[in-house]
Amino acid sequence: MKLRVQRLITPQTIALVAVLLFNWLLFPGFFSVEWKDGRLFGSLIDVLNRGAPVAILAIGMTMVIATKGVDLSVGAVMAIAGAVAATGVESGLTVWQAVPLALVAGLLCGLWNGVLVAVLDIQPIIATLVIMVAGRGIAQLITQGFIVTFNDPSLIYIGTGSALGLPMPVLIAVALLILTTLIVRRTALGLLVEAVGVNRSAARFAGISAMSLLILVYVFSGFCAAVAGIIVAADIHGADANNAGLWLELDAILAVVIGGTSLLGGRFSIPMAVLGAMIIQAMNTGILVSGFPPQFNLIVKAGIIIAILVLQSPVASRLFKRA
């Protein structure tokens, strides 16, 4: 029992608790959660709800980064998926047709990235830059430049509905987290992905098919991005090709890094990456309720992120051990 508690004390959990406590100091009502209209309501729930899209991106991004790659296209893929779902329901498709279509769009984007990285051996940062840049153009082509507003209640439910008292985006993120962690750890995928990330050449010599694994992780990342894109579109009842998911790839990468997965590949932790996403969102929500002038947003964020990364640095952990 004692061991378990100790395992929970990581730089990430300390950082999250610290940020939450800081928010509480700035805004005493931060921790109050009430039951209203059949669901939970409060700033903490907002953190979970608003952090869900980045958490979902981070789940896919963790797998990509574990292979020593990176996926810069996820923000643009969100825009594409949102555009497909919104345009779909607006042109008469049911939500059961439009949502799978949007997911397929995400899978195809991931497949494209995976083929560029694994088959053509293009550096991931360059390969995924293609869709990062061109993806918004594709999304705009789909929406024809408008914000496509829709009123389909089932689609809206994905973004704003609730079940078991929790917002749908939170439930989707939690389900994806549990499912992915189970799949990755109960099958050999986790080990093989780590092996490819640690040493791709040795993986080849050991008979691991690095190519299909690489394609798989990029396809999965594209899928996660599509899920996040559908949630974001459903949340605002519209697909905003220009702004949906803008710069979220960077938040997702940051979440993974805060979660302790090295950009050099290898060992990864999906739950920690999700925790990282929550730390980022706790900061954002904290800034919103604190009443700071918006000019300080980025400075405050930068300061906290630097503090977290310094806490996690090898030098700091050595100091901790000594103490």
């Binding site: 050999a188 780590e194 092996a195 640690v198 040493n199 040795a202 993986a203 010599f205 008979g207 060992r267």
Partner: peptide
């Protein structure tokens, strides 16, 4: 360069080819 997975454990390094 071509043999070991430095960051992975001894156990994982031994089972990796069989697992693959």
């Amino acid at each position: 360069v071509d043999g070991i997975f430095g960051e992975l454990s001894v156990r994982e390094n031994i089972v990796i080819a069989l697992q693959a």
